[in-house]
Computed example of a mutant assay.
Amino acid sequence: LAHTQAATFDITNKCPYTVWAAAVPGGGKQLTNGQTWTINVAAGTTAARIWARTGCNFDGTGHGGCQTGDCGGLLNCQAYGTPPNTLAEFALNQFNNLDFIDISLVDGFNVPMDFSPTSNGCTRGIRCTADINGQCPAQLKTQGGCNNPCTVFKTDEYCCNSGSCGPTDYSRYFKTRCPDAYSYPKDDQTSTFTCQGGTNYRVVFCP
Rank of each mutant, 00 (worst) to 15 (best):
A6Q: 14
A7C: 10
D10V: 08
N13T: 06
C15N: 04
P16Y: 12
T18W: 00
T18C: 01
A21S: 12
A23F: 04
V24Q: 11
V24M: 09
G26I: 05
T32W: 04
T32Y: 07
G34H: 09
Q35A: 14
T36P: 09
W37M: 08
W37C: 08
I39S: 07
A42P: 10
A43E: 12
A43W: 12
T45N: 13
T46C: 06
T46P: 05
A47S: 15
I50C: 02
A52S: 02
R53F: 05
R53M: 11
T54Y: 01
G55N: 03
C56N: 07
F58K: 08
D59I: 05
G60E: 15
T61E: 11
H63L: 13
G64M: 06
G65H: 07
C66W: 03
C66F: 08
Q67L: 07
Q67E: 07
T68R: 00
L74C: 10
L74R: 15
Q78N: 14
T82D: 12
P83V: 07
P84H: 01
P84N: 06
P84I: 01
E89H: 11
E89D: 15
N93Y: 14
N96M: 13
N96F: 14
L98S: 11
F100C: 05
I101V: 15
I101L: 10
I103Q: 00
L105H: 11
L105Y: 03
V106L: 04
V106M: 07
D107I: 06
D107F: 01
D114V: 13
F115E: 02
P117G: 13
S119E: 04
R124G: 03
R124E: 13
R127D: 04
R127I: 02
C128T: 01
P137R: 13
P137I: 11
A138W: 06
L140K: 03
T142R: 02
T142W: 05
V152E: 10
D156R: 05
E157G: 00
C160M: 08
G166P: 09
T168W: 08
D169G: 15
Y170F: 14
R172L: 14
C178F: 09
D180C: 00
D187S: 04
D188P: 06
D188T: 06
Q189E: 11
Q189T: 13
S191E: 00
T192V: 15
G197V: 12
G198W: 01
G198K: 12
V204A: 07
V204K: 03
P207I: 02
